[in-house]
Design a protein around this nucleic acid. Structure first.
Length: 273
DNA sequence: CGCCAGGGGAGCT
DNA sequence: AGCTCCCCTGGC
């Protein structure tokens, strides 16, 4: 187990911010997550966080996964104090982090996300993992499933994925898997690209549009300048930023600000009321 | 049963 | 850039 104390880290907020579909609440203060074949439990009491892994695995993987090397306080301090909306949004979601998730998993996750709600997205991903992922046992002896590689999905029919509740998005996922398995799309190459090039490459995938490409860039490539605009963000922009979001001020980490706004729009107003 | 929205996208003009 | 139509479930 690894114990740390940290600012600007709230596992509940991270879980609820809708960037990761394989994190779930176990108990009042405990969450679990599956990433890159690993299983982890996280327990948090205010600024004290306990990770179920050993020191070695924490340093080698989870520390980076949760972006703990980055000081989010620096992002927050630079917020325009006159921007009351953003100040409020950040106050509400100050423990959010942009996770460093797997590129392929993000491609599939956000292909599925279109015209879909978070509960169902989670179920779709779970179905895919249980059907086509690898079964493993966690430290409690309970089984969990890894996210299948592109090769594992490339041979599937659309109907096979429809059985996983993907609906019409099945063909997007199958085509993406084939494109990658065939070598038509080179993920290793995409990982080396700058934001704009990576986004352009992702847009070539059938079913990937502006919003989905930006989500993949933000969560799967950690391009913090990606600023995904979905219906919630669009509404917020129309309401609070009629002259456009001040991307200049937050240049290079617009995506972090986007997450604060998104989380506020998704969870904030409801919770306050 | 019908209706419609849920973190869009493709294919037009 | 803007418009229309499209895809599939789940909730009402």
């Amino acid at each position: 187990m690894v114990r740390i104390t940290t600012d600007n880290f709230d596992i509940r907020q991270i879980c609820d911010s809708g960037q990761c579909f394989r994190m779930e609440q176990q108990n009042a203060d405990t969450y679990s997550v599956i990433a890159s074949g690993r299983y982890l439990e996280i327990e948090q009491n205010s600024d004290a966080v306990i990770f179920s892994c050993g020191e070695e695995e924490f340093e080698a993987f989870w520390k980076r996964y949760f972006d703990l090397e980055q000081d989010y306080g620096a992002y927050i301090e630079n917020v325009n104090p006159n921007d009351r909306y953003l100040v409020n949004a950040i106050e509400f979601g100050s423990g959010i982090r942009i996770l460093r998730q797997d590129l392929w998993e993000m491609i599939v996750s956000f292909l599925i996300s279109q015209q879909n709600n978070i509960v169902r997205i989670r179920r779709c991903i779970r179905n895919i993992c249980e059907q086509y992922g690898e079964e493993r046992k966690n430290f409690r002896g309970m089984r969990y499933y890894t996210f299948p590689e592109p090769e594992a999905l490339a041979f599937l029919t659309e109907d096979a994925l429809k059985a996983c509740n993907l609906g019409y998005r099945s063909k997007y996922v199958v085509r993406a898997a084939r494109s990658i398995a065939d070598g038509e799309t080179d993920l290793a190459g995409v990982r080396k690209m700058k934001y704009k090039d990576a986004k352009a490459e992702l847009l070539k995938l059938y079913g990937v549009g502006e919003k989905v490409a930006d989500c993949i860039c933000l969560f799967g490539l950690h391009h913090l300048e990606a600023f995904p605009v979905d219906t919630h963000i669009l509404q917020a922009l129309e309401k609070h930023y009629k002259r456009g979001f001040p991307k200049r001020r937050y240049k290079g980490y617009e995506g972090v600000m986007q997450q604060y706004v998104f989380y506020w729009e998704l969870r904030g107003e409801m919770e306050i009321r």
